[in-house]
Design a binder for these strands. Structure first.
Lengths: 66, 66
DNA sequence: TCTTTATGTCAAGCAAGCTTTACTTTAGAG
DNA sequence: CTCTAAAGTAAAGCTTGCTTGACATAAAGA
């Protein structure tokens, strides 16, 4: 699942570690999500959306319905 | 995390088993999510939103930021 | 009453999300 | 070139999402 975390971080001048702190997860988790290694949980997606003032759909891109 | 799955199901006259089939998960998974036993994964939340023609935020209610 | 359908629940097990620790690579500042 | 901050990566382990199989309960119809 694609996401815009890297761009949103850049816009706010945040490092992966700083974003991780703001979301109460580890730096490796942010890195893994940005690199597409796995999808965030729904609660984490909500936290990120709230932090950036966006919807989940604004940040994460769903796969097409095949 | 609260959700409106039960109501959305009722509006469309679907059983838990039918919804489970439409979302490619087990009936027990739908039941557990409706009963609040655990949160769906982000991909499953997207599938449900797409199925009902709603956003994730329309269906699932985030916890307050404490 | 008997049967069927929908829902609820439990247990065991596999898969995915996330953690800590630690090491490597990249890129910019000096 | 050297130093440092940021990013990338990997292993081991815990927690959560989801599975199958099984059984229990409630409601409704024949």
């Amino acid at each position: 699942m694609k996401n815009r975390l890297k761009v949103l971080r850049a816009e706010r001048d945040l490092t992966q570690a700083q974003l991780a702190d703001l979301l109460n997860v580890s730096r490796q988790t942010i890195n893994a999500i940005e690199k597409g290694k796995f999808d965030p949980s729904l609660p984490l997606a909500f936290k990120a959306a709230r932090l950036f003032g966006l919807t989940i759909e604004d940040i994460f891109e769903d796969e097409p319905p095949e």
